[in-house]
Amino acid sequence: MTKVEINEELCKGCGLCINFCPSKVLNYADYTNNKGYHPAKLINPEKCTGCTSCYLVCPDCCFEIYR
């Protein structure tokens, strides 16, 4: 059982996490954060395996992962 939290205000919507997530858990949010970016958002959280790929490729340290 894993849980991923995204700090949406730090996110710049670069999409690297979305691309590198092997389970397609993430996508862009349809809303924007205070900086005007569409942050990454969990769309299929139940599919998350806790592989930490999102954390690894995120250039802005937006992810925290719980097990």
Binding site: K12, Y37, P59, D60, C61
Partner: peptide, 29 residues
């Protein structure tokens, strides 16, 4: 549940000035 991956404590919790997708941030981390 226990936090297993968090921002390193050696990094201040402030937003970085880098452009979206710039990999400087990865190296900092």
């Amino acid at each position: 549940m226990k936090k297993v991956i968090v921002k390193p404590k050696v990094l201040h919790n402030i937003p970085w000035h880098y452009c979206p997708g710039c990999t400087h941030g990865i190296v900092h981390r």
